[in-house]
């Protein structure tokens, strides 16, 4: 599409959590579950939002809100399904938006002023025309990794 640019473009799935717009490379997203039924897990690490039923498997889903220390969502959330070494896992987000085309040229690393936890979670940001799109790498959201990287 943007053949005039020298830098490659990428398709990202945009999701909203709170007031922030996040982008996740579409290639990593296995499936999007619209407001599925969830089951909380008592005593689970704080970042686990609950269990989600996905094609006969029971997925552990990470809550981006909890991970970022935000209040729990008031309404049901959407879930993105990712694959990791261990199997599959889910990610709770407020809502899933459209697929956006972003150019590597518009990408900038995390600002140094960003809080440490977010520094570790975010993979820089893309500058859209009217707002910022924070880049998320599913790899960094793997529950197993989170458990060791961000103990409670």
């Amino acid at each position: 599409m943007n053949d005039t640019h020298a830098s490659p473009t990428q398709e990202v799935c945009s999701v909203v959590v709170g007031d922030t717009l996040f982008g996740i490379p579409i290639a990593h997203v296995l499936e999007i579950l619209g407001k599925p039924a969830t089951q909380p897990v008592p005593l689970a690490p704080y970042f686990v939002g609950g269990l989600v039923h996905y094609r006969g498997e029971v997925l552990t889903a990470v809550s981006l809100r909890r991970l970022l220390g935000m209040e729990s969502a008031k309404s049901p959330e959407d879930v993105l399904v990712f694959e990791n070494g261990d199997g599959l896992f889910g990610l709770f987000v407020d809502s899933v938006g459209e697929v956006l085309h972003v150019s590597a040229a518009d990408h900038e690393p995390n600002p140094a002023t960003l809080e440490a936890r977010r520094q570790a979670l975010f993979d820089g940001t893309w500058k859209l025309k009217d707002r910022l799109l924070v880049s998320l790498e599913p790899e960094r959201l793997d529950p197993m990794r989170l458990a060791s990287a961000f103990p409670a």
Binding site: V41, E57, V58, G87, P143
Partner: peptide, 19 residues
């Protein structure tokens, strides 16, 4: 019986999940 992810297995009280 459906297996649980490792982070939840570590809680130790659950043997799995089911639908």
């Amino acid at each position: 019986v459906k297996p649980l992810a490792a982070v939840l297995r570590e809680i130790g009280l659950y043997a799995g999940a089911t639908i």
